[in-house]
Lab assay of single mutants.
Amino acid sequence: MGMPNRKYADGEVVMGRWPGSVLYYEVQVTSYDDASHLYTVKYKDGTELALKESDIRLQS
């Protein structure tokens, strides 16, 4: 078993793309699913969504 190939840690605050949009919002990573390679993130309004790594970026 190798290390999970994840870029962002639980609790890390990053920018997540809103689905169907080009806009990124501040989100907190809450979990990562090794099987689906999706991150569960929480937006400031409390919305929780699963995002692909390509829809997440570090805060500038």
Rank of each mutant, 00 (worst) to 15 (best):
T30F: 08
G46D: 05
W18N: 04
K44N: 08
V14E: 00
G11V: 01
S36I: 04
Y39Q: 01
Y8W: 09
V13D: 04
Y8K: 00
Y25C: 13
A50R: 14
M15Y: 11
A9N: 10
A50P: 08
D34L: 06
D33M: 02
G46Y: 03
V29F: 00
R17Q: 05
P4Q: 12
A50V: 14
D34R: 03
G2W: 04
D55A: 06
L49A: 10
K42T: 11
Y39C: 02
E26H: 07
M3W: 11
D34K: 06
T40I: 12
G16F: 08
S60T: 14
Q28W: 09
A9Y: 10
S54V: 11
L49S: 06
P4Y: 07
Q28A: 07
R6D: 02
S60R: 11
Y43L: 14
G16A: 15
K52R: 13
M3S: 15
T30L: 14
R57M: 14
D45G: 04
L58P: 14
E48R: 08
T47A: 06
G11L: 05
H37L: 13
L58V: 13
S21W: 03
I56T: 01
V22I: 12
T40F: 10
M15E: 11
V22G: 13
P19L: 05
Y8M: 01
L23S: 10
G16Q: 02
S60E: 13
S36M: 11
K42M: 13
M15Q: 08
K7S: 06
Y32E: 00
Y25S: 06
V29N: 00
L49P: 00
G2R: 01
Y39K: 01
Y8C: 03
L58S: 15
D10R: 03
Y32A: 00
E12N: 05
D33W: 02
D10L: 07
K52A: 12
V41N: 00
H37A: 14
D34C: 09
V22Y: 13
P4A: 10
P4K: 07
K42E: 07
Q59P: 14
L51Q: 02
D45T: 04
N5E: 15
V29A: 00
D34M: 06
D10P: 08
Y25V: 14
S31D: 09
L51A: 02
Q59Y: 11
M3Y: 14
Y32Q: 00
A50F: 13
Q59F: 12
M15I: 07
P19N: 06
K44P: 12
Y43D: 10
Y24P: 01
M3V: 15
Y25W: 09
D33A: 03
M1K: 15
E26L: 10
S36F: 07
A9M: 11
G20A: 05
L51H: 01
Q59I: 14
G20N: 10
Y39V: 04
G2P: 15
Y25N: 05
A35R: 10
T40A: 07
P19H: 06
T47H: 06
R57Y: 12
R6V: 03
Y24R: 02
T30K: 13
L38S: 09
I56K: 00
A50Y: 15
S54H: 11
D45S: 05
Q59D: 12
R57Q: 11
V22E: 15
N5I: 14
V27F: 13
L49R: 09
E48F: 12
D45K: 02
V22S: 13
L51I: 11
L51R: 01
V27A: 12
S36T: 14
V27L: 09
H37C: 12
E12Q: 13
G2F: 03
E48W: 06
S21T: 14
L58D: 14
K44A: 11
M3H: 15
I56N: 01
V41G: 02
M1W: 02
E12T: 09
T30M: 15
K44E: 10
S54I: 10
V22C: 15
Q59V: 14
V13H: 10
S31C: 07
Y39T: 01
K42G: 03
R6F: 02
T40L: 13
A35W: 09
I56C: 02
K42P: 00
P19R: 15
G2V: 06
R17K: 11
M1R: 13
S36W: 06
Y32R: 01
G11K: 05
L38Y: 11
D55N: 05
E26I: 10
G16Y: 05
E12I: 07
T40E: 06
E26Q: 11
N5F: 07
K7R: 08
K42H: 08
L51N: 00
E26F: 07
R17H: 04
G46C: 06
G11H: 06
E12G: 02
W18S: 08
N5L: 10
Y43I: 07
E53C: 05
L23G: 11
D33P: 00
E12P: 01
L58F: 11
L51Y: 02
V41I: 03
K42Q: 13
S21Q: 09
M3R: 14
A9G: 09
L38P: 00
E48K: 09
M15A: 05
W18V: 08
D33Y: 02
P4V: 11
L51M: 10
E53Q: 06
H37W: 07
G16D: 00
Q28T: 15
